[in-house]
């Protein structure tokens, strides 16, 4: 009897130790990455990063201004295109088509798009936009990002609208409001925080996307705000700088990586706090 207890206790101990080890190993490893990023990125953080263009190889100084501006432009346009489409699609799934067969199909396809490799999105936009337009362009990059934004927004919109209690809709309908007004005035207001969370999460997701921009927006060494030509952007600039032995470029790549990570993390944290605010009520 005692030996059974002992062996049960022993296997329990072993597994517990392994679980602790896994937690320390995993969390430690991830902390190490953040730490390296912080140390290497902060060294190069200097006001000129935000005021100067990316330097040619072998030149000291220089910043990331054109890449930062390009990234801001493309991310904003991508989110601006993707958000309404995703919002309306999610609205249809949750409000009009909740019991339709089509909804199941669309939801499934949306889930596939949500986790499809982003480089495939790049290939798609290359075939659908870059080739017909005759060259790499900032607008193609924005559209690639929009294609990534849409499934994220669809998913959160549907989830959030499904949480809105039905009696709110019923009350509004009973007052004679048409369906569209019930949705825009009642459902949207009730789910507002959740909807904003979804858009923020989508922005965070595309802010660091590199693969879909590699051959849609390409990148650019110079100041570029023309949407119909190649456009500088932070992720692809980092990609190009990492692949080059120039030490100044390496430093700029680290700093750029730090900027991206800080942006993505703060967007995620804002989205989280917004989403959590609803719960205590």
């Amino acid at each position: 009897m005692n030996s059974i207890y002992a062996s049960r206790r022993r296997s329990d101990k072993i597994i517990k130790v392994l679980c602790y080890a896994a937690a320390i190993f995993g969390v430690g490893w991830l902390c190490l990455i953040l730490y390296t990023l912080l140390v290497n990125g902060l060294v190069g953080l200097h006001p000129r990063i935000f005021t100067q263009m990316t330097p040619p190889p072998g030149v000291q100084d220089g910043g990331l201004l054109n890449a930062i501006v390009g990234s801001l432009i493309m991310t904003s346009i991508g989110v601006a295109i993707g958000t309404p489409l995703g919002l309306f699609a999610g609205t249809w799934l949750a409000e009009y088509g909740r019991y339709s067969k089509l909804t199941g199909v669309i939801r499934f396809v949306n889930d596939i798009l949500l986790s499809a490799p982003s480089i495939i999105i790049g290939l798609f936009v290359y075939g659908a936009i870059v080739v017909p337009m005759g060259g790499f362009s900032g607008i193609a990059g924005s559209i690639a990002l929009a294609v990534i934004v849409i499934p994220v927004v669809v998913r959160t919109t549907e989830d959030m609208l499904n949480l809105v209690p039905n009696h709110l809709r019923e009350a509004a309908s009973a007052l004679g409001m048409p369906r569209a007004y019930v949705i825009t005035k009642v459902s949207y207001s009730a789910a507002r925080a959740g909807l904003i969370t979804g858009v923020l999460l989508a922005t965070a997701r595309v802010a660091g996307e590199t693969a879909p921009l590699l051959f849609t927006a390409l990148s650019n060494q110079f100041w570029s705000v023309n949407l119909t030509s190649t456009m500088a952007n932070l992720p692809v600039t980092i990609n190009n700088f990492v692949n080059n032995p120039d030490p100044n470029w390496k430093q700029l790549a680290w700093t750029g990586a730090l900027l991206i990570t800080v942006t993505v993390l703060s967007l995620n944290i804002i989205a989280r706090t917004l989403g959590a605010e609803r719960k205590p009520k």
Binding site: P84, L85, G86, F88, A89, W92, V109, N110, I150, V154
Partner: peptide
């Protein structure tokens, strides 16, 4: 009119997901 328009806008957006795939 607003009601119909909204319905079709959302419906077309939903179908757009399928079109992307």
């Amino acid at each position: 009119l607003g009601d119909r328009t909204f319905y079709w806008v959302t419906r077309v957006s939903a179908l757009f997901v399928l079109i992307i795939l």
